[in-house]
């Protein structure tokens, strides 16, 4: 409940997680890189091959960060590209 009754006119749209249901979300985060000119060609160089991603699940009772927000979950995930294919 985060909206007063005057704003509500029914379940217009499912924005909750239904019971016994799974919800998936995928996030893509680009590693820092830069395009470097080498003669007439351009080559991409990786600036960082490691990322530490902080995953935080917030519940925003009023739909925004207003002091009422609650953290439901948080975890840090380490990613790296060390073993991946290197740009040519």
């Amino acid at each position: 409940m985060g909206r007063g009754p005057y704003e509500k006119s029914g379940l217009l749209r499912e924005t909750s997680i239904p019971p016994l249901a799974r919800v998936h979300k995928t996030f893509e985060i680009t590693y820092p890189f830069k395009d470097v000119k080498k003669g007439t060609a351009s080559r991409r160089e990786l600036l960082e091959d490691e990322l530490t991603v902080s995953v935080v699940l917030w519940y925003l009772p009023f739909g925004e960060f207003d002091g009422n927000e609650t953290v439901f979950f948080e975890q840090e995930k380490d990613l790296d590209l060390k073993t991946e294919w290197i740009w040519r």
Partner: peptide, 24 residues
């Protein structure tokens, strides 16, 4: 944009409770 180095984070949320979250 060509080939990009990306990190992919997959998040799965499972509601174990007896009602939608959030609700009241």
């Amino acid at each position: 944009e060509g080939v990009l180095p990306i990190g992919i984070i997959n998040v799965e949320l499972y509601n174990k409770s007896g009602h939608g979250i959030p609700d009241g």
